[in-house]
């Protein structure tokens, strides 16, 4: 991972996931995977974050929360949908209180499938998101100049 130019800060929100993906997101931060050595920090403050990691599908109750978190983040920002529930609803797609994947309410940039998504896959998704983040940054600079 020597091409990481930026150390992104991550905001993690649990949509309506079963915790499986959430604990894998946290596992990325702990000694075995340890993404903190690249400066990747799981922050609780949306204003500090570059990447929004969402696990689980969205429902009527949490749509305003998800939207609010996204809006609070500073530009440029990237959304990563972690796990099959965040991608499409997965096994719960038929449930009455599941609206669907995160892309129903937010523009999702990277999809990480899996039930539960493995830490390797999540890290890979975040690295892909970094590329997109850089492009968005370049685009924003061009627009401003």
């Amino acid at each position: 991972m020597n091409f990481v130019k930026k150390s992104p800060w991550i905001l993690h929100y649990d949509g309506s996931s079963c915790n499986g993906c959430d604990i894998e997101v946290l596992a990325c931060l702990t000694p075995l995977y340890d993404v903190e050595r690249f400066g990747i920090i799981n922050t609780g403050n949306p204003k500090h974050a570059d990447i929004l990691l969402i696990t689980g599908s969205v429902n009527e109750q949490n749509i305003p929360v998800v939207k609010q978190l996204y809006e609070q983040m500073a530009m440029p920002k990237v959304v990563v949908a972690v796990g099959i529930c965040a991608t499409s609803g997965g096994i719960f797609a038929e449930c009455y209180n599941v609206v669907g994947g995160v892309d129903k309410v937010l523009p999702v940039d990277v999809y990480v499938p899996g039930c539960a998504a493995r830490p390797e896959a999540i890290i890979d998704g975040v690295v892909k998101a970094l590329g997109i983040l850089e492009e968005k940054q370049k685009f924003a600079r061009k627009k401003n100049s």
Partner: peptide, 15 residues
């Protein structure tokens, strides 16, 4: 509460 409610118990009718 209710942010994670999915309605799993009802799903027995579909699976």
């Amino acid at each position: 509460i209710g942010y994670i409610h999915r309605g799993l118990e009802k799903l027995v009718e579909k699976k």
